[in-house]
Design a protein around this nucleic acid. Structure first.
Lengths: 336, 336
DNA sequence: CTTACGTATTGAAACGTCTCAAGCCTGCTA
DNA sequence: TAGCAGGCTTGAGACGTTTCAATACGTAAG
């Protein structure tokens, strides 16, 4: 593989000159520049980013870790980040943690070794020891957390306005006349799940409805378990909830299975609102009222903040916290 | 950021010894090894992969380019490749071409500069000049094409058995009594689209049904255009197709919109079979009979082949061609 | 005609690691 | 006791760049 040296040789100039032509950082006279460019083309030379990175200690690479990029929310985030990165000349290394703390730790360490200049992290659902995060930041690698924000650590973050979003969804159900509204949460180790649960409470309280603790159901992220949970709570018509509010799209599929298993149809027998789109298109039924998070934009903003930190543009001392509004897509499942 | 030198200093040994401890390639006596490991922990030292790569000219990195990882088929492929790579100690750089030839060219060049050791490529729908591919292979960077296989280039590839898969889908429709079966294709610049069209023809011929060229509809990958196409061909009941076979999931959404716009319901008014799952779960209706491609496995196999080439395990002279079978998930849309 | 200055070009050091060859030491054999 | 084998350890060079300092060259001013 041709190196700058070979190019210099062919062009009859020094390696320094070739480097100047490539980076454009120093003026090179027209004739020499042309000779160098000709040699580059002739050899099909491509600058070696590895060597460049070593010398400049700039890799122009960002790392992003998500739980599972097979879940449609995350690729959108990644694309947002990719777009932001590309605009400023960076590339992205993406990886999946599978919601596994150990794997996440490995990835963080690997990315550090790979000398990424910054890390975008959607923390694993398994409780993330703050040391994982502080260790990165102590090494002066900027980090921005997305979607899921870790507890007790001061770190830049971009996510949705969880409390408001949940409150909006639940208030909407109340407006439509539902009164016994159950909530299905994800793992309460995640702060945004707790905040969504808080939004649920606030909506009920604002409407003067007493919170019934027996309607607060903690789901895992496993479809079968969530479906079983719903069956258990819903199959008996007596005192049953008249609507379900679900805090994330993954569990929502479990809830819908639960409905089906109990012979319940939404909205005929039960109201339903959930975070996250469940289908790629409105053509499919049941048509579910959804709290849509601006996933792409979350990725973009997080990428921009990270780049600002890397390039020293963002000078803010404490951590930057961005909360984006979610939107409510009203569909059939919340119509009484 | 601490380097091997600092570790050596703290541990009171030479850099060579530290390197030996890290790589494990050379025996180091117990006491020295312990001192080195202690120093590594104390400094929170992480080996610098950039420097290592430069020296060894091995980055242990694979590149993968897909059209759009927001489309559920592709993240599955990427995960498969990631898994295969991880098993053998490699990581992955993923990027989106947006089906744009120019962007694809840029990415290929970038990845080459980043010294990926091999490239997994799902070519862009825009016709890919073979030079893009040969230039990479001429530079001795192994490449495996996935899903979409380029024309007139000898390159390793992994994809689904397109002809068989399409034939299976269409034969299924015929079995269920459909006779005027239309096909909606993607861009015919893609070989696998042509092969799927061929499978369609074969199925009809095998059943003794004459191919009616007016039932062959070439779709773009734009929903609105496909929907318009279907409206145009389907809204008039006279001589209308009684079923539609769609060669890819993206267009399928356009087809379904077309159905809706014409007031057609599947399967009541029209049969429908398509490549690729449209929803994440069977709960949703219309429930569509689908030809499912083993996306994850395609990614795995492609990754393995690529790694075999990189590590010189695969010695086969010509190109390796793997064709995986697809499976037919029979659902409601193909029931008369 | 000399001096000084500015621009274009070059040479060499350095980035952090691996690895080869050489050196050192220990213990065993003759 | 001397020599030697074998295993640890070390020192230094090299990977492909960038970049700083130095050189060379030409031009304008004195």
């Amino acid at each position: 593989m041709p190196s700058i040296k070979k190019v210099a040789e062919i062009a009859g100039v020094s390696v320094g000159t070739v480097s100047h032509v490539i980076t454009g950082s120093v003026n090179v006279s027209e004739p020499l520049r042309l000779k160098v460019q000709a040699a580059i083309r002739e050899l099909n030379y491509h600058p070696n980013h590895v060597a460049r990175s070593l010398k400049t200690s700039r890799t122009r690479t960002l790392g992003i870790i998500v739980p599972d990029m097979t879940i449609s929310f995350f690729p959108q985030i990644i694309r947002g980040a990719e777009t932001a990165a590309r605009k400023r000349g960076y590339s992205i290394i993406a990886a999946n943690s599978d919601d596994d703390g150990e794997r996440q730790k490995e990835l963080l360490s690997l990315m550090r070794s790979q000398c990424v200049e910054g890390i975008l992290l959607v923390i694993a659902a398994a409780p993330t020891p703050q040391s994982q995060i502080t260790r990165i930041m102590d090494a002066d690698i900027p980090m921005v957390c997305l979607d899921r924000i870790p507890d007790r650590v001061s770190v830049d973050s971009v996510s949705v306005e969880d409390v408001d979003a949940a409150q909006m969804g639940v208030s909407h159900l109340i407006e439509r006349g539902f009164r016994r509204i159950a909530i299905v949460t994800g793992p309460m180790s995640l702060r945004n799940e707790r905040r969504r649960a808080q939004g649920y409470r606030q909506a009920l309280e604002a409407a003067g409805i007493a919170v019934d603790e027996s309607l607060i159901w903690h789901g895992t992220l496993h479809l079968d378990e969530v479906a079983a949970l719903c069956r258990e709570r819903l199959c008996n018509p007596k005192g049953r909830a008249d609507a379900v509010f679900c805090t994330n799209g993954h569990n929502a599929l479990g809830v819908l299975r639960g409905f089906r298993d109990c012979g319940l149809e939404t909205p005929r027998d039960i109201g339903f609102v959930t975070f996250d789109e469940l289908t790629v298109d409105d053509l499919f039924t049941p048509s579910i009222t959804t709290i849509v998070q601006p996933a792409y934009e979350i990725g973009c903003r997080a990428g921009e903040i990270l780049l600002d930190r890397i390039e020293g543009v963002a000078t803010q001392e404490g951590s930057i916290t961005v909360r984006l509004p979610a939107t409510l897509k009203v569909r059939a499942s919340s119509q009484r």
